[in-house]
Nucleic acid binder design. Sequence first.
DNA 1: CTGTTAGCGCCTTCAT
DNA 2: ATGAAGGCGCTAACAG
Lengths: 344, 344
Amino acid sequence: MEKKERLTIKQIARLANVSDSTVSRVLNNQPDVNENTRQRIQEIVKRVGYRPDAIARSLVTGQSKTLAFVTEDIRNPFFAEVARGLEDAAAEYGYQIIYCSTDSNVDKEKMYIDMLLAYRVAGIVFTSFSGNQAIINEIIKCNIPYVFVNRYYNEIPGDCVLIDNYRGGYLATQHLIKLGHKRIVHLGGGSVSFTRLERKRGYEQALKDAGIKYNEKLVKTIKGTLKYNTGYEITKEILKEEKFTAIFALNDLIALGAWAACLEEGKKIPEDIAIVGFDNIDFTAFPTVALTTINQPRYEMGRKCMEILKERIEGSSTDNAEKFKKIIFTPELVIRKSCGFYRK
Amino acid sequence: MEKKERLTIKQIARLANVSDSTVSRVLNNQPDVNENTRQRIQEIVKRVGYRPDAIARSLVTGQSKTLAFVTEDIRNPFFAEVARGLEDAAAEYGYQIIYCSTDSNVDKEKMYIDMLLAYRVAGIVFTSFSGNQAIINEIIKCNIPYVFVNRYYNEIPGDCVLIDNYRGGYLATQHLIKLGHKRIVHLGGGSVSFTRLERKRGYEQALKDAGIKYNEKLVKTIKGTLKYNTGYEITKEILKEEKFTAIFALNDLIALGAWAACLEEGKKIPEDIAIVGFDNIDFTAFPTVALTTINQPRYEMGRKCMEILKERIEGSSTDNAEKFKKIIFTPELVIRKSCGFYRK
DNA sequence: CTGTTAGCGCCTTCAT
DNA sequence: ATGAAGGCGCTAACAG
């Protein structure tokens, strides 16, 4: 049985009758190499199928071409779409992505971050984050750039890529109000997430502008993961507690869960209850669903993260670490059938 | 401005008044270390927050704790669910996952594999693969274990995790036949994928067993990505060409696209056309969709991949590389509303 | 333009 | 039970 040892730079050097530094130079496209030598080496590299060891390279350069994507759950189509944008841009620049699904569990988050730091990832994208300062401090200590997507924290520094969530919440609620709704449930809010607060603020302001009194009982804070079942269950609850004719949910998955709960209780959508979601995940466009929602340019947001990280990683090292970026995209109301027409 | 150098094993050694080898030993839980020394070192490690450099470790051990998940598109919920299963199991064993979305494009696939090999990943999961032998040869040459999920190749060796796709295709078609359908379109087939061939074979056999003649014109091979739009477009075509009362699509996304196309052409589902999908992605259960489909235990399949890889990576090195595993799960028919009831 | 030297941070014999 | 030395594969000064 033959031993298949991995080729090293030294063997290439020997084959080409040069030193390994010379090979290293052509491998890294450095100048000051004789054109003949360069070609000869490149040819050999190609012929024998030599592939530089990225691990060894990382060790000496102190840098890796690996990024991390920290998310609540990659099964949520919103995150998957952001991830794809990031991944595509990353691939163009020669970076690869490690995915970490935390289920919004601080311990899992810690575990993952620890692993990522051990592997000296070049940058981290947070699409979900516990808000735990200690974790961010660790990352900062390791001098690793990071960016929040669709997340923002007043107390925690960092680049971020967002949409105007306030405006999104406003548009969603305003749409329902225009259709004649007065008792509008909001599935969202809570205190941990700036994104949620902003959406809720938009909801409140739209009510106010329309002269509708804010009613605390119509606001249900989501606890736990932002998934379908969560929306389903919370809606089951509020259907027993309150009367209302419309729902604005903080994301599409929750909205869909709410929809299912309404149907199960004999409510018709949109005749009895109108629903607006948030994110505009692909499925909301399906004809028998047709959920009205707020669009976020998810793919583009993912790409933008890569741009930001790339600049931080490779950019001029003038310490501009203090000037954090805040990229804000514009939300758009996507009107579909789940709200029906003007009533009463 | 303070320089924040990363702590190294040597500094820990100095703090503990021992040599770095001793520190290394306790870090790796090796025996033959004085219990006092061990505790002292562990305490220091904890106190100063030292984190071993995984890159350096990988370089010397020649192994990494990084796996790769190669898929067509992570936005496809089927893949996302498999990925989550893999990721969860991986996290339990201290592995992390790099995701690679290839869009079933050989060049992208090559590019990614190249990157993965350069980084010496410990193992690869293919959820989508071009069938390119050369690529597999490279991987084998690097001695990296890999497993195919939901894919199987006669000519290409490797472990695989599958369902009985033939049976899945049979169940789907049989269901339609039982409901009285005779002209059943199949969106699938083609020659590249064993999985597709098997599903189609099930389709054919079910027809045969029911005494229905196989009609080539009712079979449309999917080209391109297995996504919603692809299903939509191909269905638009066949609606113009043929008469039929039912569709069996090779996956749910295609089925959903077909559904949308039918609606657009004024067909009602299930009254005019019955539809069966494949995979049982979460969204098919939504009440206003309720797509009849074939369930695959996606999450479990992902977990299984981890088990297989772990054994190959860490297992006893007795060369059992020839005995490839073939794990087969059982598909289940999930009856929902998209097929309606018995007709005529 | 090219070779030599010296590590990157860690693990692993081999002595002691 | 511990330390010293050497090396994983590569890059980066520094000479020449």
